[in-house]
Design a protein around this nucleic acid. Structure first.
Length: 128
DNA sequence: AGCGTGACGAGTA
DNA sequence: ATACTCGCCACGC
């Protein structure tokens, strides 16, 4: 996995040492099981630090080292620029998608957040 | 220091 | 469904 190399321009001094927040955010991303997703806001809440935008920044900078397609926007809209790549992953993993309505014809499907959203452990989860 | 921008989120019209 | 506003926080100019 030579892709684990991090962008030098982000941390010229020590590409190995990520900010703690970034490191933790990436760690959470790796915990998300295939077929499920977590929102930027959920990750931030889980970390009890930073906010959705900060998690988004981390994924933008270092997402290449983790399953970035499993960290998504709360509204289920696929990220512009990565939507096709992400869609292939979703179809391959069986992530719940919501097909575009006729009115939205031409748009790509969105994630069915109600079913795909993973709360980071399903603690206190009562359904089978 | 101020201001704009962004892989965001929620609320409102 | 869309558009707009405001809150949020880190970055870059």
């Amino acid at each position: 996995m030579s892709e684990e190399r991090l962008p030098d321009d982000a941390h010229p001094a020590h590409a190995d040492a990520l900010p703690e927040f970034a490191e933790r955010a990436l760690e959470v991303a790796e915990l998300i099981p295939p077929g499920r997703v977590m929102t930027y806001g959920d990750v931030a809440e889980w970390l009890e630090e930073g906010g959705p935008r900060q998690v988004g920044r981390v994924m933008a900078l270092y997402g290449g080292a983790v399953p970035w397609w499993r960290v998504v926007r709360a509204d289920g809209v696929l990220l512009p620029g990565h939507e096709l790549r992400a869609l292939e992953h979703y179809r391959a993993e069986g992530t719940p998608l919501k097909e575009a309505s006729r009115a939205a014809e031409g748009h790509l499907p969105r994630l069915d957040m109600k079913r795909a959203r993973w709360d980071g452990g399903e603690r206190a989860q009562g359904h089978t």
